[in-house]
Design a protein around this nucleic acid. Structure first.
Lengths: 254, 254
DNA sequence: ATTTACATTGACGCTGCGTAAAGGTGTAAA
DNA sequence: TTTACACCTTTACGCAGCGTCAATGTAAAT
């Protein structure tokens, strides 16, 4: 009995394209080809296809399958055992991924604004990583290696409640900042409230508070374009305005 | 501060190719391009890249990420929740796959011959699925809807021991069949033993045995090319020989 | 003789880049 | 100033496993 591509595809439940592809990659060649170029398969090919599909079901790649079924004394079970290990690794990966996604979703319960939270999240990341990478040295020189280390550690070791609190404070800083900016007066009530919130926010990561350090950070907001961009995104000039407000709050000379 | 591709790639820990690709698909365009055609990124782009990498870590596709970060009021959490569902589905699939692979490996303990077992596995599949698809109707007409249903159910509901037993019987049928075929005598002792083993094998799936049905099936082995192919693979003419033996065994007129 | 069903060989598309290849720039050392 | 060398650019194939046209030839049924 001979089968054309379509007949075999019906028997095996695969597409004709698949059969042609299997021919192309040499994993299943037809028994013969007739004068019109038609592929004709015999029962041996049906069996072989069934083996291929069996291993395919197991998730093995076609190259692997080719090796298994072409080399007569190849240990199929051993291949499956190796394959199993790969699958188990994949499963671990997937589970970690799912855990991460779920953690991210759960973290959102605090419900700031997604984009705000993200920005803050990114901001936090930047504070720790980039600040460390690029400004680490000068900050260490200014405030001491120990202070910086403690700050970073505290940042990473925060509980979720603390993180939430800090996030809320950050949100408060943002909101009052933009409200204060509209008043145009960095010495005004709103602007000073912003500076106060900002101080509270800082206290979450700073070991000890000093007006000088606070003012220094405010100046950095203006000097470092990455910080400037963060505050200026919604409102150009906001970084500078915040610095002025903090300078007044800390009694720094402008 | 402006970053070239390489600088940005260092900051973000991605390849320059990735940055160019992100430019190409429009997910992250540089702030500006200088006279020499160099890509220059600003801090806004650093932020955007960080968002992109965040979602990428979550396993989202770039097209999805593009939507999330390009459309300002798109709900990122919702996207993550949908994504989570997909990941969970993937996990279920993967677990099923692993279970299958492990079952296959375990089944090999019985140590038939791998290829024989596979063929039988495929044969079982064909019996249930294809038989149902192509000959279901005529068999139902012949033996009744109920009989067929019960047979299929029993086939699928078999325990592993039963399956093993059945597998051994199938192997016995094959071996004695080819031995008997050499004798050339379908009425001989070996051939009749084959028929007997075949009856026992049938009993695993048949609700009740009848000589007529047995003979009917034997005829089908010859009529249906797929069955013929199975028995004839090792020995052309074996299917016909088996039918003759069974006809004699059941006292059917040839 | 015509329609219909089925066959063939290309060849592009999908995902997210890795990896050359071939050639212009920027900067520092000789 | 030349030379070297690091860094930039665009173009394009490769991967895994087919799905999906497109253009065209053949077998079988009406």
């Amino acid at each position: 009995m001979e089968y054309t591509v379509q007949k075999l595809s019906h028997i095996a439940g695969v597409s004709t394209r698949t059969l042609r592809y299997y021919d192309e990659i040499g994993i299943l060649k037809p028994a013969r080809i007739n004068t019109s170029g038609y592929r004709l398969y015999g029962s041996a090919e049906v069996d072989r296809l069934q083996q291929i599909l069996f291993y395919r079901e197991m998730g093995l790649g076609l190259e692997n399958i080719k090796t298994i079924i072409t080399e007569p004394d190849f240990d199929g079970i051993k291949a499956l055992q190796e394959h199993r290990m790969k699958l188990l690794e994949k499963k671990v990966q997937l589970e970690m991924l799912i855990a991460n996604v779920e953690k991210t979703i759960a973290l959102d319960e605090g419900r700031i604004n997604m984009s705000d939270k993200e920005k803050f999240e990114g901001f936090k990341q930047k504070l720790v990583d980039e600040n460390e990478a690029k400004y680490g040295q000068e900050i260490r020189e200014k405030y001491g290696d120990d202070t910086v280390k403690k700050s970073n550690q505290r940042f990473k070791g925060m509980t979720e409640e603390q993180y939430d609190e800090m996030t809320k404070l950050a949100k408060g800083v943002n909101e009052t900042l933009y409200a204060a900016f509209i008043t145009g007066d960095p010495a005004g009530e709103l602007a000073q409230m912003t500076a106060e919130l900002h101080r509270q926010w800082l206290s979450y990561t700073w070991d000890s508070y000093s007006k000088e350090a606070h003012a220094g950070l405010a100046q950095m907001y203006v000097d470092d374009p990455r910080f400037t961009a963060y505050y200026d995104e919604k409102q150009p000039g906001a970084a500078e305005f915040l610095r002025d407000a903090i300078f007044i709050y800390t009694g720094q000379n402008v």
